[in-house]
Protein backbone atom coordinates (compact mmCIF):
# COMPACT_ATOMS: atom_id res chain seq x y z
CA UNK A 1 0.00 0.00 0.00
CA UNK A 2 1.21 3.46 -0.80
CA UNK A 3 0.44 5.21 2.37
CA UNK A 4 2.41 8.28 1.58
CA UNK A 5 3.16 10.46 -1.37
CA UNK A 6 6.85 9.65 -0.85
CA UNK A 7 6.33 6.03 -1.75
CA UNK A 8 4.91 7.11 -5.04
CA UNK A 9 7.75 9.52 -5.49
CA UNK A 10 10.24 6.73 -4.88
CA UNK A 11 8.68 4.64 -7.58
CA UNK A 12 8.96 7.51 -10.05
CA UNK A 13 12.59 7.88 -9.04
CA UNK A 14 13.21 4.20 -9.76
CA UNK A 15 11.59 4.58 -13.16
CA UNK A 16 13.76 7.59 -13.93
CA UNK A 17 16.85 5.63 -13.00
CA UNK A 18 15.75 2.77 -15.22
CA UNK A 19 15.19 5.18 -18.09
CA UNK A 20 18.58 6.83 -17.67
CA UNK A 21 20.38 3.47 -17.55
CA UNK A 22 18.77 2.53 -20.83
CA UNK A 23 20.22 5.65 -22.39
CA UNK A 24 16.97 7.56 -22.28
CA UNK A 25 15.19 5.39 -24.83
CA UNK A 26 11.83 6.62 -23.69
CA UNK A 27 12.85 10.21 -24.16
CA UNK A 28 14.18 9.49 -27.61
CA UNK A 29 10.92 7.81 -28.45
CA UNK A 30 9.18 11.10 -28.10
CA UNK A 31 11.55 12.90 -30.40
CA UNK A 32 10.62 12.07 -33.95
CA UNK A 33 13.76 13.32 -35.69
CA UNK A 34 16.20 11.01 -33.96
CA UNK A 35 17.01 7.64 -35.29
CA UNK A 36 16.89 5.33 -32.31
CA UNK A 37 20.04 4.61 -30.39
CA UNK A 38 22.41 6.74 -32.42
CA UNK A 39 24.30 9.51 -30.78
CA UNK A 40 26.73 11.70 -32.58
CA UNK A 41 26.93 12.41 -36.26
CA UNK A 42 24.57 10.26 -38.26
CA UNK A 43 23.43 10.24 -41.85
CA UNK A 44 20.37 12.22 -40.98
CA UNK A 45 22.64 15.00 -39.79
CA UNK A 46 23.86 16.13 -36.43
CA UNK A 47 21.54 17.13 -33.66
CA UNK A 48 20.83 20.79 -33.16
CA UNK A 49 19.37 23.03 -30.51
CA UNK A 50 17.82 26.41 -31.17
CA UNK A 51 17.27 29.14 -28.64
CA UNK A 52 15.72 32.56 -28.87
CA UNK A 53 17.21 35.20 -26.60
CA UNK A 54 15.12 38.07 -27.89
CA UNK A 55 18.01 39.94 -29.52
CA UNK A 56 19.53 36.85 -31.12
CA UNK A 57 18.80 33.38 -32.31
CA UNK A 58 21.30 30.85 -31.08
CA UNK A 59 21.86 27.54 -32.83
CA UNK A 60 24.08 24.80 -31.45
CA UNK A 61 25.13 21.82 -33.50
CA UNK A 62 26.82 18.62 -32.29
CA UNK A 63 29.83 18.11 -34.54
CA UNK A 64 32.40 15.94 -32.72
CA UNK A 65 35.71 15.54 -34.49
CA UNK A 66 34.93 17.95 -37.31
CA UNK A 67 37.51 20.63 -37.93
CA UNK A 68 36.70 24.26 -38.55
CA UNK A 69 37.85 23.96 -42.16
CA UNK A 70 35.44 21.10 -42.82
CA UNK A 71 32.36 23.02 -41.78
CA UNK A 72 30.50 25.53 -43.87
CA UNK A 73 27.62 27.74 -42.87
CA UNK A 74 25.55 29.61 -45.43
CA UNK A 75 22.88 32.16 -44.75
CA UNK A 76 20.47 33.45 -47.34
CA UNK A 77 17.61 35.54 -46.07
CA UNK A 78 16.16 33.42 -43.31
CA UNK A 79 17.37 30.18 -44.81
CA UNK A 80 20.39 28.66 -43.09
CA UNK A 81 22.42 25.76 -44.33
CA UNK A 82 25.13 23.90 -42.42
CA UNK A 83 27.42 21.43 -44.14
CA UNK A 84 30.20 19.36 -42.68
CA UNK A 85 32.46 16.45 -43.46
CA UNK A 86 34.32 14.21 -41.11
CA UNK A 87 37.22 12.30 -42.48
CA UNK A 88 38.31 9.04 -40.98
CA UNK A 89 41.27 9.79 -38.78
CA UNK A 90 42.66 6.31 -38.54
CA UNK A 91 46.37 6.78 -38.22
CA UNK A 92 48.80 4.96 -40.48
CA UNK A 93 50.21 1.67 -39.35
CA UNK A 94 47.48 0.89 -36.84
CA UNK A 95 45.13 -2.05 -37.04
CA UNK A 96 41.54 -1.29 -36.19
CA UNK A 97 39.76 -3.25 -33.48
CA UNK A 98 36.57 -1.33 -33.37
CA UNK A 99 35.29 1.37 -35.69
CA UNK A 100 32.03 2.97 -34.70
CA UNK A 101 32.62 6.58 -35.58
CA UNK A 102 33.49 6.43 -39.26
CA UNK A 103 33.44 9.12 -41.89
CA UNK A 104 30.40 11.15 -42.58
CA UNK A 105 29.15 14.18 -44.40
CA UNK A 106 25.92 15.99 -43.81
CA UNK A 107 23.85 18.96 -44.80
CA UNK A 108 21.20 20.41 -42.57
CA UNK A 109 19.11 23.37 -43.44
CA UNK A 110 16.60 25.39 -41.53
CA UNK A 111 14.14 28.13 -42.13
CA UNK A 112 14.77 30.52 -39.31
CA UNK A 113 11.73 31.55 -37.30
CA UNK A 114 12.52 35.24 -37.74
CA UNK A 115 14.44 37.54 -40.04
CA UNK A 116 18.11 37.89 -39.16
CA UNK A 117 20.73 40.48 -39.94
CA UNK A 118 23.37 38.79 -42.09
CA UNK A 119 25.95 41.24 -40.82
CA UNK A 120 25.50 40.15 -37.21
CA UNK A 121 26.40 36.50 -37.28
CA UNK A 122 28.94 34.90 -35.00
CA UNK A 123 30.08 31.32 -35.33
CA UNK A 124 32.32 29.49 -32.90
CA UNK A 125 33.45 25.93 -32.45
CA UNK A 126 34.29 24.57 -29.01
CA UNK A 127 34.53 20.98 -27.73
CA UNK A 128 32.75 19.65 -30.79
CA UNK A 129 29.80 22.00 -30.55
CA UNK A 130 29.27 24.60 -33.26
CA UNK A 131 27.49 27.66 -31.90
CA UNK A 132 25.92 30.21 -34.22
CA UNK A 133 24.62 33.46 -32.84
CA UNK A 134 22.45 35.25 -35.36
CA UNK A 135 21.43 38.80 -34.61
CA UNK A 136 17.78 39.40 -35.41
CA UNK A 137 16.79 42.02 -37.94
CA UNK A 138 15.46 45.22 -36.39
CA UNK A 139 11.74 44.53 -37.04
CA UNK A 140 11.97 41.06 -35.50
CA UNK A 141 13.40 42.22 -32.19
CA UNK A 142 11.12 42.45 -29.19
CA UNK A 143 9.98 45.92 -28.32
CA UNK A 144 8.78 47.37 -25.12
CA UNK A 145 5.51 49.14 -25.61
CA UNK A 146 4.78 52.02 -23.34
CA UNK A 147 1.20 52.33 -22.21
CA UNK A 148 0.12 55.90 -22.48
Amino acid sequence: MWTRIRDFDRMIQAMDLFNSRLGGVFENYQRPRLSAGTWGVTESGPRTNMYDTGENLEIRVEVPGIKKEDLSVKLQGNYLEIRGTRKAENPEGYTAHRVERGETSFTRSFTLPSEVDAGKVEASLKDGILTLILGKAEPAKPKQIVIS
Binding site: R47, T48, M50, D52, L57, E58, E62
Partner: peptide, 9 residues
Protein backbone atom coordinates in the same frame (compact mmCIF):
# COMPACT_ATOMS: atom_id res chain seq x y z
CA UNK B 1 19.89 30.53 -23.10
CA UNK B 2 16.62 32.38 -23.55
CA UNK B 3 13.63 30.49 -24.84
CA UNK B 4 14.02 27.04 -26.31
CA UNK B 5 12.67 26.77 -29.86
CA UNK B 6 13.80 23.18 -30.17
CA UNK B 7 16.26 21.00 -28.32
CA UNK B 8 17.52 17.75 -29.77
CA UNK B 9 20.38 17.26 -27.38
Amino acid sequence: VGAVIWEEF
